[in-house]
Amino acid sequence: MFEWVHVETVNTPATAAQVWSVWADAENWPKWDDQLEWVKWQGPFEEGAIGTMKPADGPVVSFVLTEVEEFSHFIDRANLPLTTVDFIHRYEPTSDGGGRIVHSVEMRGFLAPLFGRVIGSKIKTHLRQAMEKLSLLAERQ
């Protein structure tokens, strides 16, 4: 199986609860990720919940929360042709009272190398900035 992986880490003074409140407000993800035009959501923020999102330069994508552990991490999964994309969002507390936001993007499947070049290149250029905006929003909670 082919795969493409990219990981970014940003230190934040925000607490796990502050970061979680921003993550769990899925319809407002475009406030911190300017590569999203909109996100629509069905139901509570829990494993199995389904949503759709519209990337700025792409088609509407359906996704599902495959794993959710409050104040710790969640994974949202989108299926592309012959490829699965997992967006893994994790908060790791640090000894100074803040933490680290770790965001991984993992593409697996036959077309992962192609999607890595096309979509992955965009992810690499904007992910850190999105995470920094997430951190600032969380601090204001």
Rank of each mutant, 00 (worst) to 15 (best):
K54R: 13
N79T: 14
M53E: 12
P81L: 02
S62N: 15
K54L: 09
M53F: 14
D96S: 08
D76L: 03
E67N: 12
S62G: 14
R77D: 01
V61L: 11
I75S: 06
I75L: 08
I75W: 11
R77G: 01
V64C: 10
F74A: 02
F74P: 02
I88L: 01
T66H: 12
D76W: 11
P59L: 11
V85D: 00
V64Q: 15
T83D: 00
V68F: 11
T66G: 10
F74R: 05
A78D: 04
F63M: 14
M53R: 15
S62C: 08
V64G: 10
E92C: 05
F71L: 04
H89P: 02
E92K: 13
G58Q: 04
G98V: 13
P59G: 13
G58L: 04
L80F: 10
P55C: 03
V68D: 10
S62P: 14
V61Q: 13
F74S: 02
G58Y: 05
S95G: 11
E70V: 09
G98I: 10
A78W: 04
S72G: 08
V60W: 09
N79F: 09
D96M: 07
R77H: 07
V64A: 09
A78F: 05
F71C: 01
R77F: 02
L82P: 00
I75A: 03
E92R: 13
A56D: 02
P93T: 10
A56P: 01
R90S: 06
R77C: 04
F63I: 09
S72A: 10
P59K: 13
P55Q: 07
A56W: 05
L65Y: 10
H89E: 04
E67P: 12
S62Y: 13
N79Q: 14
P81V: 00
P81C: 01
T84G: 01
S72E: 07
R77Y: 05
